[in-house]
Design a protein around this nucleic acid. Sequence first.
DNA 1: CATAGTGCATCAGTGCCATAATACAGCCAT
DNA 2: ATGGCTGTATTATGGCACTGATGCACTATG
Lengths: 114, 114
Amino acid sequence: MADESKPVYLRLREIIAASILDGEFSDGDLLPSVRAFAATQGANPLTVAKAYQSFQDDGLVVVKRGVGMFVADGATRRLREAERERFLDSVWPPVAAQIKRLGIRLDDLDLAKA
Amino acid sequence: MADESKPVYLRLREIIAASILDGEFSDGDLLPSVRAFAATQGANPLTVAKAYQSFQDDGLVVVKRGVGMFVADGATRRLREAERERFLDSVWPPVAAQIKRLGIRLDDLDLAKA
DNA sequence: CATAGTGCATCAGTGCCATAATACAGCCAT
DNA sequence: ATGGCTGTATTATGGCACTGATGCACTATG
């Protein structure tokens, strides 16, 4: 969901979520520091902090002050379920409607194109 | 694409585009006036005007000052092609990526749910 | 000409987003 | 203990998009 028009902190949030879902970071793993991640993404550290903040609010990330941010226990599973529900409820229906409206056939939709 | 978080004028634009693609308005038809459409949608007339504006810029709508806005010649076809290209280029790839990432099977995606 | 319906231009207000510069609080290896 | 790394809080600023109220120019109709 790399929509170029979205706010930066939301894009960063999606990048982090994708990394976790793809297994790049597992439960208990130490996430990149705010400053380090900001550097690699060319973003402001405070903007990164804002992205991390939303994960804390959901309890998906645990902060050890002075050490770093860790993926919470069971976060991978909970994140996957939350994202799945959000996708099926909010993302897919309008997409399906557009597919139908535009008369797009499933042959045109290559699932490997991702 | 009724994303509740999007700006109003973009949602209105999508409503209009869908109406045209669904054949509710054909080439040459008179579109609802800015004020009338604003009333039915509970929006501000200026916001509606901004939505219509984007169609004018694309030449999909022709303005007769003092009369109203008409669907341009060939607009239905051009709109369908533009929307199709936009969908395949910008919308579908991230959606497909998310489907793959979340391990969603095609059985869960009911195309009739639209 | 008078009226009522069009779209449109102008100006202003509001809120979110991103950035910045510091400073502070906690942990850890040396 | 000290230096260096964590995240956090504060305040301020600039930019931009969205929304809104008012009034004007235009056209069809009678």
